[in-house]
Design a binder for these strands. Structure first.
Lengths: 188, 188
DNA sequence: ACGGTGATTACAGAACCTGTAATCACCGTG
DNA sequence: CACGGTGATTACAGGTTCTGTAATCACCGT
């Protein structure tokens, strides 16, 4: 058990988001984050690989969930539909955290370092989907291309959802984004 | 004029690739790179924003060229074909540097930090293509999705080209990759 | 009371990166 | 040839990120 009753990572994440919003990402040191969370800089690095990682919690488990959901889809379902359904199945989790997602996005957009990390997370998502599609029997290059375009549609949906969260759930935007994708693909 | 007759950046790039291949990326310091190139660590940072950037020379001009080529395509050409043609038009430059590209790729693949930077370069390429397509009158979300899938096809072609450079030029692989894309898209 | 366990801390240090001012090599001009 | 301008390079100082290592701490079962 740790010294603090509540989760240590959550404390650090909250402290980080607070400070990043107050002073900005670059003008906040890891030591300051740790101090506000009531611990030491070294402890921060015991929980996060680096300063950026504090803004990407649970990304790995999200990716794992998507991979599982794609793998568990009905065998006869077309690959793109399987991915779309997998995204939609996990979208409730985000809908319940829209406000936090907005704060996070505002920080991310303001700092190239953080967007850089976001791109690698999306790349990891793409590779996970590729792997899941391959185990479904989809051969390359279809698996790679389908995964890449799925991530693009996912990004599109997330952007729309965050642009105006009252306009619909993430699931709704995912649905329309993948519809847009079908429509666009027909023109290729 | 600089102190050295040849380009300073080229010297640093060569020194960096040498050392990265000898000792690996993490076990090479910026000071060592600069020393081998005959200058100071500070000079390195006068030419490259950070340590990673030394492995991504001319990326910005490449992106600019692609954007221009996409913008200069015939008005009646379908967007995906315009992007494909733009890639192919600039592929000779790479074909003449296949060996260097191989060395570079081997270093990149071995270090997550460098792959992270690569993803942001590809993201920048995608955004440039998106912008070029928009000026061609392609509306969102088609512009975004088309750009994303184009980058995926480009990556696919580059991977194939580097996997076995004797099997064809990059232009050839680009051609077949975009054909694969058409074929795959029909199944969506 | 006592030892085991896992998290936290203290400490030291390398490497990255930046700001600033001085220095240097070169070049055109008087 | 002297001279000043220009742009690149350097010297120097310093903050920040991140890592390794060993000590300490809080808790828990016995």
């Amino acid at each position: 058990m740790g010294r603090w009753p509540g989760g240590t990572q959550e404390r650090l994440q909250e402290a980080a988001i607070e400070l990043f919003t107050e002073r900005g990402y670059e003008r906040t040191t890891v030591a300051e984050i740790a101090t506000r969370a009531g611990m030491t800089e070294r402890t921060f690095y015991n929980h996060f690989a680096d300063k950026r990682e504090v803004l990407f919690p649970e990304q790995d488990s999200f990716i794992a969930k998507v991979r599982e959901a794609v793998g568990a889809a009905p065998a006869e379902q077309p690959p793109l539909d399987a991915v779309s359904a997998a995204f939609i199945a996990g979208s409730d989790w985000f809908d319940q955290r829209q406000e936090a997602a907005q704060r996070r996005r505002r920080i991310l957009d303001a700092h190239p370092d953080l967007r850089e990390r976001e791109w690698t997370k999306l790349a990891a998502l793409g590779e996970a989907i590729t792997a899941a599609l391959r185990t479904r029997g989809i051969p390359d290059p279809a698996a790679t291309l389908t995964a890449a375009v799925s991530v693009a549609a996912y990004q599109l949906a997330a952007a729309r959802w965050l642009a105006d969260p009252r306009h619909g759930t993430l699931g709704h935007h995912l649905h329309t984004s993948f519809e847009d994708l079908h429509r666009t693909a027909r023109s290729w």
